[in-house]
Design a protein around this nucleic acid. Sequence first.
DNA 1: GTCTATAAAAGGATAGAC
DNA 2: GTCTATCCTTTTATAGAC
Lengths: 187, 187
Amino acid sequence: MDTRTQLLDAAERLFAERGYSGTSIRAITNEAGANLAAVGYYFGSKADLAAAVARRVIEPINAAQGENLDRLLAAGGEPAVADLVEAFVGPLFDVRSARTSRLLMTILGDPAEEMRSWVGPVEAMFRDRYLAALQRALPGLAEQELWFRVRGMLAVTVVDRIEPTGDEGRRWAVTFLAAAMSAPPTR
Amino acid sequence: MDTRTQLLDAAERLFAERGYSGTSIRAITNEAGANLAAVGYYFGSKADLAAAVARRVIEPINAAQGENLDRLLAAGGEPAVADLVEAFVGPLFDVRSARTSRLLMTILGDPAEEMRSWVGPVEAMFRDRYLAALQRALPGLAEQELWFRVRGMLAVTVVDRIEPTGDEGRRWAVTFLAAAMSAPPTR
DNA sequence: GTCTATAAAAGGATAGAC
DNA sequence: GTCTATCCTTTTATAGAC
């Protein structure tokens, strides 16, 4: 297989297991069966490799979330909270192996700037589109508390890195989060 | 102040900001205004220092969670879901500065084994006591889905590291999580 | 208890042969 | 594209003076 791809695979695996700072270039090239200099040749630096890894994982999830929202809005009428939750949460379960899940955790949780450098799009997507749709679906809720809940939703889907994966996990998550998002405003 | 305490404070701050692997002993002793050899003298190694840091943060939270549960159970009758949620979530907001919150995230999320070495008690507390009480409060829910929800609760309280801190955050979190935990079983 | 000095290893990066 | 060899820096850890 492509050396470049093998480096991405190995880095994805190791970053997920040990974090950015805990993973050395030597460990990555070792795991990939490539030469120590290969990371420099293909990506320039360890930080650039990390950005490529994060990008490869996050972009398809982002795209699917966007398409799901498009579909909901195109159907006409205001989508219900549960539909919005599923549209957002679903793609995270589609791609979800234990490894991918753990990597997402690492990407969003790793304090190393190199890992978070590619998270921007997720948040932009939220702010600009899902948040607006949720606000219409939850008219009684103050914007700040809605923000709080949206972050809670992200936390559950990203961090809850244990079984089950796939369909059952998705359904449980939607139940859990739709109820949480739909709670009456505090006070 | 005590050099040992200053090392703990500095390490707590830096581990929270940069993770375990991203923080060097030099950075810690520098921040603490102590000598490079001080970590070895007081704690033996960087890993032992990390364990001490994690322990110092987690133990009081754990204790408060246990006491809250004791109090609920001593009051007689079966506690409601919202009460159980508040008993568990509350202590996480009491101690919650932005820094502490972020450190909890690092402790639970950092792939470095040294950081997670002190998480055992949290999970034990869950399994043995809160889980049983929640199961009585949610009789229709299968044990596996309950487990899923409990992990979701932990994710929200620990990861949601942004504002607000303190009372308002606690109330919002309880609203959010009580609704989520009380959702009817999936299907 | 605190400091200096240093050992010993690991890390990121790159030059240059092939 | 791939490899070896190497530079330079940073890191953990400890020995021993004060």
